[in-house]
Design a binder for these strands. Structure first.
Length: 427
RNA sequence: GGAUGGAUGGCUGAGUGGUCUAAAGCAACAGUCUUGAAAACUGUCACCUGGGCAACUGGGUCGUGAGUUCGAAUCUCACUCCAUCCGCCA
């Protein structure tokens, strides 16, 4: 949610943001509602003053009359307020100055590429074929037991998942390593180790709503009997940790690393990525979440991207970094940076990471604030970013590390976490 | 699932219809004293929102939402969460 004052004072900027993000909101109507709301509130306040005076004076007759008047005004206010809130929720965050303006993903800008695209002297195959051959991915049985877009991850691939997690935890809790990463990225920030968190995977819909993500119930698994839903990302339950709280400036930044399963209905993606485990209803993910003071939030995002890149470089897989354009970026995002990793089986880069800087857009709705050193209170800035979407990372690893005989080498940095094993062979 | 108790500011906690404009303590911050610190003393110290350059001032907030009343932290109803016990359970 944006600040109504900001909207009032920067109508053109907000209008452009709505247009560039392919949304529709009538700002004039919104501003009119805001004025109506304010006027009504003022009238109610004045009336309440009189009511308080009457109550103190024990003037029962005047009080009765004033109460009747107040009831009418309050009903009117409730209606206007409801419309106002609903409309405010439709206004997206404004994009950063460096965000490319374009209607769809074709406007995303590649800002850097890393690694050399591997040349195979045989025909590289896709992960589902490799996985089936090696007996480490079983979507057929999962299809029978649970339906499409589910899989059994087995044997060495299951071990590889835990190796990845362990490797990442070691990096993100190692302050010296993180300092190195920040320094290499030319970032002037106060580095601290991330707090590892295993968050709940269920969330109350009302809280999810306050994360100000523009989402439909079709995207999530809902449990109306229990007033709960499954999260689509650890971010959903990490973000509200400081809901309705004031954080002291000296305690920022707060950097968290969540590990959880993510659940997605993929309602709108029929026929897309139906093979293998690229697009699943259920996958595990390491997710970073950072709360910071406003003036540092862009650097924090750059830091998160630098960490993402470090991990991929350690795995030695080619990737490209994209600045996402207005038409493709998230509703609450001020700046979105994605990473696409090279998938030899598809001869294509595929999206594996996303880093969202939402500035104060989510925190305003969550009511998470910072008390600055000078005592002023303002919304904190929030960043969230994928560290590893494990399913897709496993895909990238086995496709990039495949051999002609269908076996798969294990990336060097992960070998210590796999008991020294170097190759996955048919099981 | 059953039973009982509870939710008040950063924390502890008093408050059972109108002097609550929420006691007191702790913590924090500032000052005095001190070479410095501690202690002591003095002061400040919740949040949202309207008006005002400001001093200041109006309204709202005692888990959430509705209700009763001229008047609600206090009474009623619903909900959420927490604690303890019983049952079940990894």
């Amino acid at each position: 949610m944006l600040d109504i004052k900001f909207i009032k004072e920067n109508k053109e900027i907000v209008e452009a943001a709505i247009k560039n993000k392919n949304r529709e909101v009538n700002l004039d109507e919104l501003l009119t509602l805001s004025e109506q709301r304010k006027t009504l509130k003022q009238e109610i306040d004045d009336l309440n003053k009189k009511r308080n005076d009457a109550a103190r004076a024990r003037d029962i007759e005047a009080g009765t009359q004033l109460k009747r008047e107040a009831d009418i005004l309050e009903t009117e206010f409730a209606e206007v307020d409801k419309k106002f809130i609903a409309m405010m929720a439709k206004v997206p965050n404004i994009p950063s100055i460096d965000t490319p303006i374009a209607p769809d993903e074709s406007g995303n800008k590649v800002i850097r590429q890393w690694g050399t695209i591997p040349e195979f002297n045989f025909k590289a195959v896709e992960h589902d074929e490799l996985g089936r051959h090696l007996g480490i991915i079983d979507t057929d049985t999962a299809g029978v037991v649970s339906g499409s877009r589910f899989a059994y991850i087995k044997g060495d691939l299951a071990l590889l998942q835990f190796a990845l997690i362990q490797f990442c935890l070691n990096v993100l809790t190692n302050k010296e390593k993180l300092e190195e990463i920040a320094k290499k990225a030319n970032l002037d920030i106060n580095v601290s180790s991330f707090v590892p968190i295993i968050p709940p995977v269920f969330i109350k819909p009302a809280v999810q709503n306050r994360m100000a993500r523009y989402m439909t119930p079709e995207e999530h698994y809902m449990f109306p009997n229990d007033d709960l839903m499954l999260i689509g990302s650890a971010e959903h339950t990490l973000g509200p940790i400081y809901m309705d709280k004031i954080i002291e400036e000296k305690d920022l930044p707060i950097r968290m690393l969540g590990y959880s399963t993510a659940f997605r209905r993929e309602a709108g993606s029929h026929g897309k990525d139906t093979k293998g485990i690229i697009r699943q209803h259920q996958f595990d993910k390491l997710e970073m979440e950072v709360f910071s003071i406003p003036e540092n939030s862009m650097q924090e995002q750059d830091f998160l991207v630098a960490i993402q890149e470090y991990v991929i470089q350690q795995l030695n897989i080619p990737y490209q970094v994209l600045l996402i354009c207005t038409g493709d970026m998230g509703f609450p995002d001020y700046r979105q940076i994605d990473i696409e990793m090279w998938m030899p089986g598809q001869s294509n880069y595929r999206e594996t990471h996303s880093a969202d800087l939402t500035t104060s857009f989510q925190s305003r709705r969550l009511n998470t604030r910072v008390r600055r050193a000078d005592g002023k209170i303002e919304p904190v800035h929030m960043n969230d970013a994928t560290l590893v979407a494990i399913g897709r990372m496993l895909v990238a690893i086995i496709e990039n590390y495949q051999n002609e005989d269908g076996s798969v080498r294990i990336p060097e940095v992960l070998q210590p976490y796999m008991g020294g094993k170097k190759v996955i062979v048919k099981q």
